[in-house]
Design a protein around this nucleic acid. Sequence first.
DNA 1: CACATTTCCTGGTTGC
DNA 2: TGCAACCAGGAAATGT
Length: 302
Amino acid sequence: MPELPEVETVRRGLEPHVVGGFIDDIEVGDPKIFQIEPHLLLEQIRGQQILGLTRRGKYLIFELERHYFIFHFGMTGQLTFRDPNRSDSEGFKRHPVTGLQRTRQHAPDRHTHLQVHLRQGGAMLFRDIRKFGKVFLIEKGEVAVFFERLGLEPWTPDYNLKAFLQKFGNRKLAIKSLLLDQSFVAGVGNIYADEALFAAGIHPARKVRSLRKTEKESLFEAIPKVLEEGIEYGGTTLRDFVNSDGNTGHHQERLQVYGRKGESCHRCGTLIQRMVISQRSTCFCPDCQPRGGRSRTGKAPI
DNA sequence: CACATTTCCTGGTTGC
DNA sequence: TGCAACCAGGAAATGT
Ligand SMILES: [Zn+2]
């Protein structure tokens, strides 16, 4: 499930291959993922130069001459660069230990729903098994409206403590649910929400309005910290994520709680538990993240 | 308005 | 071995 660190990993990998290039032709698979008629998409983007590649939350944004060409990866979206000077791998392999799917550079298959060929050679391939991904093409003037409902963007001036604290209000939903809301902090998904709550020592089911100021401040620090580590390790591959080269990330080996139900907490040894919040699998350490919050010493629950 | 639940989709895993 | 049931989840749509 590509979240901010995975999208940023793809962005960094793709940038040197495509920025400055010109879009030549496109080939389309299942039109479901397109928020614009495919033939209109081709008509509009053909011949435009890619001026830049940026990111906002979980959205990857190609700046063209007259448009923004925008991708959202949903759950299983992959955007890879197919280099004509490199050979394709045979197909799909299975990691002998982790069982992870390893794709590397690959030819289009039944799940490849878009190929964007570049004039200088090579192509970007968008592959999405579950088809929760989306492809948009918007006019340059529409960009503010397009992103208006997205929340704070980490590492920008918008991401400051004052703005962060104002987002809490007197709400009574679980803090985990708030973290999944893209109008709070953009780019946080199920994995990094759990990791951030662990880093901040907050139980995921705690009601937002019950959090003390010090806990909110801990979360403010924890969110960029876990996202940064995710990027540093090339993203988290649980099943489908691959970077622009088609290779897996390594952050799955660094996860503290997500997907670790029944395993020992790396910090205290207690067994990690799982619960469902907002219909999402949620993992936490009952000792490091007590329901009543941590005391000032950071050890015993209140 | 605030919050909860349902829906979309496929393939891997589980259990009989 | 086969096959049905179940699970994963981002975010829009729908329900309370
Ligand atoms: Zn612990």
